[in-house]
């Protein structure tokens, strides 16, 4: 593990979080609006665990651009489909990340984008089904100063 106090990287991360970071990486704290966003999205319902798969690297290579895939199990027919998936991050300055909108025409509820993570934190995806039920998944992602193995 090399020591890398990668000051430039740290500064870059703070592109998304200058106010929070003030130049250093702090442990994640669920202090942003992510819980409220979820509550608003579900209308207060508690989402069930399952059906949602959130694919992110365990350790981010670059906090400025972290690839993220969400897949929700669903037949995606007129009778049964996923309408929306909201993704939030509990350690960024603001919780909101992205919301995907699907329909039976999507054929599958699957999307990928690249996101900014200011620090180590949990990413949470909540899926809204057309029957009004909600499912969720979360995954911790470590944003490290850098280190050297091997």
């Amino acid at each position: 593990m090399t020591l890398i106090f990668n000051r430039r990287q740290v500064l870059a991360y703070s592109a998304a979080a200058a106010a929070v970071l003030s130049g250093t990486i702090k442990p994640a704290a669920a202090a942003n609006d992510s819980a409220e966003l979820i509550k608003k999205f579900t209308g207060g319902k508690t989402p069930q665990q399952g059906r949602v798969k959130l694919d992110l690297p365990e350790i981010a290579e670059n906090g400025n651009t972290v690839p993220m895939t969400v897949v929700v199990e669903s037949p995606m027919t007129e009778q049964s489909y996923v309408s929306d998936v909201m993704v939030v991050a509990d350690g960024n300055p603001n919780g909101g990340v992205v919301t995907f909108h699907f329909s039976p025409a999507s054929g599958v509820a699957e999307a990928n984008t690249r996101i900014r993570l200011a620090t180590s934190q949990d990413i949470i995806a909540v899926a809204k089904m057309n029957d009004g039920s909600f499912f969720m998944a979360s995954k911790p992602v470590k944003v490290t100063i850098g280190g050297c193995g091997g």
């Binding site: 998304a16 400025n64 651009t65 972290v66 690839p67 895939t69 995606m76 991050a89 960024n92 603001n94 909101g96 990340v97 992205v98 919301t99 995907f100 909108h101 699907f102 329909s103 039976p104 025409a105 999507s106 054929g107 599958v108 699957e110 999307a111 990928n112 984008t113 690249r114 996101i115 900014r116 993570l117």
Partner: peptide, 23 residues
């Protein structure tokens, strides 16, 4: 006809990348 859409927040990375499927 809409097949897919997304709302981006500031936490979406610069030069946004999007990947999805449609039937």
């Amino acid at each position: 006809k809409a097949v897919f859409s997304a709302d981006f927040e500031p936490a979406v990375a610069a030069n946004p990348y999007i990947q999805f499927k449609f039937k």
